[in-house]
Design a protein around this nucleic acid. Structure first.
Lengths: 155, 155
DNA sequence: GTGAAAGATGAAGTTCACTTGAGGTCAAGG
DNA sequence: CCTTGACCTCAAGTGAACTTCATCTTTCAC
């Protein structure tokens, strides 16, 4: 039989996430732990899946806040099932597709611009900030930021 | 005839980059300006192309430092030609391809994980951090972070 | 039962790319 | 001339996601 509880060090080793990060996640309400008599954190093993979710969503570029919102939709009383996690993961799919599409658009634009070497502010597709809101990467700025009025105008 | 020099406001309007950002770029050595009698910035029009380069590279997820390094390879004495810009832009292509590939891999992994709902730390491809160094987005954390020994332990 | 390793806390620091604010100067139309 | 809006500098603030530090307490293998 395996230990019932994991220490923060155990979780860190098994998840590859630093203890300081785990405490930080707890502070942000993303994970939780019981406490030992001496006030040390004791994690249930399900926390590993939760941490996995957080890390993966984070890799996808979601903010911790967004991730927290997603986690909040998990059932309250019981341990989440595979189906629960599946539901959450499915929502990433659209995001990923979008991001890939944006990058591909950018690449195509780049191709045409390499042809001309222009980078003209007036004409170059690369410079056109219209889909800036649809963005690229992890930066929260990119993912949600800015209402369209801001974005278009270049601020 | 057009004005010989642009004020910071002109450049801001034409490039869609805030004056504060232009000053910041100058501080970082990315752009330069002459000064008027009264110490106000007077930009040559070529700065517009330079700013365009900075913004585009930034959208691609390069840090300002990397962008600065790229700009440093431009010819010193003369105004850069279209060919010069072309050379710089071409180097983005590989980066883009890489990023697209990473995201696609992630998407495929996600597909198989949606199937199982696992997110298992042991088996799930999504959790495999092996290509973390090849990363996704702008985050410098992602681009360099973590030596392999740390990363690997996670699984 | 004891000493080293591991854990706890709260505050402050880090990086990136900027923005904001305070307090003062410059330029141009009326 | 004068007012107003654009500019100047320098310092500090922002936010995301953590890490580091100082100081103290707990755990556990021997």
């Amino acid at each position: 039989m395996v230990e019932r509880y994991l220490t923060i060090g155990d979780v860190a080793r098994r998840s590859g996430v630093a203890p300081s990060a785990l405490r930080f996640y707890e502070q942000r309400g993303l994970i939780a732990a019981e406490r030992s008599g001496g006030n040390q954190r004791r994690y249930e093993r399900t926390v590993l899946r939760r941490v996995a979710f957080v890390r993966t969503a984070s890799r996808l570029g979601l903010t911790l806040e967004q991730i927290g919102d997603a986690l909040a939709t998990l059932p309250d009383g019981r341990t989440p099932t595979a189906a629960d996690w599946r539901r959450l993961s499915r929502s990433w799919r659209g995001l990923l597709d979008e991001r890939i599409a944006t990058l591909e658009r950018l690449r195509d634009d780049l191709d045409s611009c390499i042809g001309c070497g222009c980078l003209s502010l007036d004409r170059c597709a690369l410079q056109n900030p219209d889909d800036r809101a649809a963005a690229l990467g992890p930066g929260p700025r990119y993912l949600e930021g800015d209402d369209p009025s801001d974005v278009g105008a270049g601020r």
